[in-house]
């Protein structure tokens, strides 16, 4: 039957084409992390070094912090590297993670249009700035995706005593980069992490409006997933990655990552918590 033969031949060819991609011989771990670390280019700078030293390939799935933690809870990652300390500690307390370590920090910034309708440019107090944005009903783009940045933004609104609502407050349900694209398109204010901002090329009229508030501190933590909970995780390789990140060597590699001369992440590993 010539048709059957053709179909079989096609299948065989396709299988042959797919085979190299499906081969999995090198040891690897899967890291669930945030869009900010991926979009900023940090992993591209960091991972080849680690892989060269240990032979372990690191596969990063970049998601919002909430989703990344869920991915790890479901056993679909060996390590989580995210930025919501409270949620991370809960993750460990619930038995999903081995132990949490501080890795590095950077800071959040409020970016907004050059025209600055809320008159907050150059100020330092993030809570006061958000009050001004609300008072001016200036467009504000919110991530709205339960990411670490989104959770930080919600905290600041709460501190300001405002439940943001109305035409000016636009919840996007998008990653950091997409949100910056949208904010640039509609000249809106938005809270961003500095790493993504520095790596972002479509700023149009957006500039940094508010920075330097202590509250804007953005801590990243790393946790190996507990093999007691998910026996299939690669506990040894995962721990090797965590250990390297907080080692002198790993910390120096993080510090060395710069865009346009500006350092994106500041290593601050100490004792775990």
């Amino acid at each position: 039957m010539s048709l059957t033969r053709r179909v079989l031949l096609g299948l065989a060819v396709a299988a042959g084409l797919a085979a190299p991609a499906l081969a999995q011989d090198k040891p690897f771990i899967t890291v669930a992390s945030t869009t900010s670390t991926e979009a900023s280019g940090l992993f591209k700078h960091l991972l080849p070094d680690f892989t060269k030293k240990t032979g372990i390939e690191v596969r990063v799935v970049a998601q919002g912090t909430g989703q990344a933690i869920q991915t790890a809870k479901d056993g679909n990652a060996d390590v989580v590297l995210v930025h919501d300390k409270k949620a991370e500690e809960q993750f460990v307390a619930d038995g999903f993670g081995v132990r949490r370590f501080d890795v590095m920090y950077n800071d959040f910034i409020l970016v907004g249009p050059k025209s600055d309708p809320a008159k907050v440019k150059g100020t330092k107090d993030i809570v006061a700035a958000l009050k001004a944005v609300e008072a001016a009903k200036a467009p504000f783009a919110s991530r709205g995706d339960d990411s670490g940045t989104d959770r930080a933004e919600k905290r600041f609104w709460k501190e300001a005593g405002i439940a943001p609502k109305g035409d000016w407050y636009r919840e996007l349900g998008a990653g950091m980069g997409q949100t910056l694209n949208t904010a640039a398109g509609m000249n809106a204010y938005t809270l961003a992490d500095r790493g993504t901002w520095l790596g972002f090329s479509n700023r149009q009229d957006l500039v940094v409006a508010v920075e330097g508030d202590k509250k804007l501190f953005n801590q990243y933590g790393v946790i190996a997933v507990n093999p007691g909970r998910h026996p299939h995780v690669k506990a040894k390789q995962a721990q090797a990655f965590v250990d390297w990140l907080i080692s002198k060597d790993g910390q120096a590699t993080i510090a060395a990552y710069k865009i346009g001369g500006e350092q994106l992440f500041f290593p601050n590993a100490a004792a775990g918590s």
């Binding site: 179909v7 096609g10 299948l11 060819v13 396709a14 299988a15 084409l17 797919a18 991609a21």
Partner: peptide, 13 residues
């Protein structure tokens, strides 16, 4: 191409 062609072959089969 590999992923798409493989999926296409399976779907056709």
């Amino acid at each position: 191409l590999r992923v798409t062609l493989m999926a296409l072959a399976l779907a056709c089969a």
